[in-house]
């Protein structure tokens, strides 16, 4: 009789829904950080479940670097339409135009670090007191130390050495004015959990995650997608490969892997047997051993 056990995906789902409901109840003006990647897509899906049959009680915030995959933007607009949600776009190009940041130059220039300024501006302008993100603890070593409710000071900074203790499922979202929180409902999910969940729930994801033919360039030990934003170096050539992406960041820094996984089921099988971490193809993480921690301290997502 006594078979009241949840499987691991149902338990993780229940935990995430609980966190999302806490965010909605403890904050005045929360928002979901929506990048168009798989993690923010399942976050939005979980929010739909948490407040059903009411609408998701927060807007989606997209930090637009101007260096997106075109597919991501289309996917974002479709999802916003379908949910009837409000979309707030923070533009890195505008931040550059306003003279608040300067575009990087040099060989491996990217707009990745500039996003932080745009993000903190968007949070301030829209009076967002809790930005909900799809970061997971298994992604990266400094993220392994994150709380579900993560406090940010008035400069938007994270102080990893002085985090609040977080016990049981009691989340403390109290703060002074000018400060804000980041909340991470899928902290305990792994890449494998995310894919299994996408498969079992039949969640739509951008086609970029599935194997497709694409023009790519071999750079920094990865297949970088060819686009107008890439200047070919003398030694480089454009080749067509069957590839897919494990994460989606800017088109200028997100490497593809060679893959024949042309369906969700095959993606799950591939992830299960993968011997590289998913962010292994992200040049933004490779600038130094602690590049994620350094960016997170400043307020990066």
């Amino acid at each position: 009789m006594n078979n009241y056990n949840l499987n691991h995906l149902k338990e993780l789902e229940s935990e995430a829904i609980y966190v999302l409901r806490e965010v909605a109840s403890q904050f005045q003006n929360p928002a979901i950080l929506f990048s168009g990647g798989k993690d923010s897509i399942i976050l939005t899906h979980l929010a739909l479940k948490a407040f059903y049959p009411a609408k998701i009680p927060f807007p989606l915030v997209h930090i637009d670097t101007g260096h997106n995959f075109p597919e991501t933007i289309k996917f974002r607009d479709d999802i916003v339409d379908r949910l009837g949600a409000r979309l707030i776009v923070g533009s890195v190009q505008n931040t550059i135009n306003d003279g608040k940041v300067r575009e990087e130059s040099g060989r491996d220039a990217s707009r990745n670090a500039l996003q932080t300024v745009t993000l903190l501006d968007a949070i301030e302008e829209n009076k967002i007191d809790c930005a909900i993100g799809g970061a997971r603890r298994d992604e990266e070593k400094s993220r392994a130390k994150e709380r579900f409710f993560s406090h940010r000071d008035e400069f938007g900074q994270w102080n990893p050495k002085h985090q609040r203790a977080e016990l049981w499922n009691l989340f403390n979202g109290r703060m002074n004015s000018g400060e804000h929180f980041r909340a991470f409902p899928i902290s305990n999910w792994t890449e494998m959990d995310v894919w299994q969940y996408i498969l079992s729930e039949g969640i739509d994801v951008p086609s970029l995650y599935i194997a497709h033919n694409r023009e790519v360039v071999w750079r920094n030990n990865t297949w970088l997608p060819y686009s107008d934003l890439i200047k070919l170096r003398p030694e480089e050539e454009i080749v067509e490969k069957l590839v897919r992406f494990r994460t989606l960041g800017d088109i200028t820094i997100t490497g593809a892997i060679e893959s024949g996984a042309d369906s969700l089921t095959k993606v799950v099988v591939e992830v299960a047997s993968s011997r590289q971490t998913e962010r292994g193809n992200r040049s933004d993480d490779k600038r130094s051993e602690t590049s994620m921690e350094d960016r997170k301290r400043l307020g990066y997502f």
């Binding site: 298994d138 305990n188 602690t290």
Partner: peptide, 29 residues
């Protein structure tokens, strides 16, 4: 070094905070 994720931890060779790690076997997560 797998579990000591923060810069200070690596430099000082101490663990400062709780770190969460994940693994799965065919039977459990």
């Amino acid at each position: 070094y797998l579990t000591d994720g923060l810069k200070d931890e690596r430099e000082q060779g101490i663990t400062i905070d709780v770190a969460y790690r994940y693994f799965t076997t065919p039977k459990r997560k």
